[in-house]
């Protein structure tokens, strides 16, 4: 039976250097012979553009986890104007990292996004409520974009970055800068690829706003991260 244990090992307001210590305490208390992997999740926000992202590293050797957690924390903390909300440790009796695989290039992602935009217009323009609001107005569909990036690492099973925002250039800029930092800090070796999460059928209308001659329609993913 799949077993997963989880704890918040740090949250905003605690001392920065406590990430490793708290992680160490948790690992020493909960790690047993059935545990195959620990995922350290950093939930963060880049505040200048309001980008939500998380950085996850998966490790199977309990000896290295706290040090890596602390290093990953610093690498993320000093990324642009980042605020870290939580750091979580998840212990699993299976290798979760193997379930995540990102092979696309950034160019492929951009092409997929373009197609997604077309499908969004096709699907949601037919929505009776939106059709009503569209009369005499320009509609701006704003789909939430969820992009994963996988990094190869010699120290961990893998590192995965997930970025959520509605403006692709901001996502790309953040990923470029963050992955370069992770490589520079020696946590990752190279970017393996990207993966766009979800399709048009995973989107639903979250909110609408009529402003003069424009209608803004926010589309959110029906399935959020861990669903």
């Amino acid at each position: 039976m799949k077993k997963e244990l989880e704890a918040t090992i740090w949250s905003w307001g605690e001392e920065f250097e406590d990430v490793g210590k708290n992680c160490e305490k948790y690992i020493s208390k909960r790690w047993d012979e059935n545990i195959k992997e620990c995922g350290v999740w950093i939930l963060a926000r880049e505040r200048n553009e309001g980008i939500i992202y998380n950085v996850v590293l998966f490790v199977s050797d309990p000896k290295n986890i706290s040090d890596l957690a602390q290093r990953l924390f610093y690498a993320t903390l000093f990324q642009g104007n980042t605020k870290i909300d939580f750091v979580l440790a998840r212990l699993s009796d299976s290798i979760s990292a193997s379930r995540i695989s990102c092979h696309d290039s950034m160019e492929t992602v951009e092409r997929e996004l373009k197609k997604l935009g077309e499908k969004v217009i096709e699907k949601f323009s037919g929505d009776p409520k939106i059709r009503q609001m569209m009369i005499g107005r320009e509609v701006v569909f704003i789909p939430e974009i969820d992009l994963l990036c996988e990094l190869e690492s010699q120290l961990t099973n893998k590192i995965v970055v997930e970025v959520i925002h509605d403006f692709f250039p901001h996502i790309r800029d953040l990923l470029d800068s963050l992955t370069s930092r992770l490589i520079k800090e020696g946590l990752a070796k190279r970017v393996l690829g990207y993966k766009l999460e979800g399709g048009v059928n995973d989107l639903k209308v979250e909110d609408t706003e009529v402003r003069g001659k424009k209608v803004f329609v926010w589309l959110t993913r029906t399935r959020k991260v861990t669903d």
Binding site: I52, N54, E206, D207, W218, V225
Partner: peptide, 10 residues
């Protein structure tokens, strides 16, 4: 606007 949930976990 209404409250938009950008990221959700338990």
């Amino acid at each position: 606007s209404d409250i938009h949930v950008k990221y959700r976990e338990p």
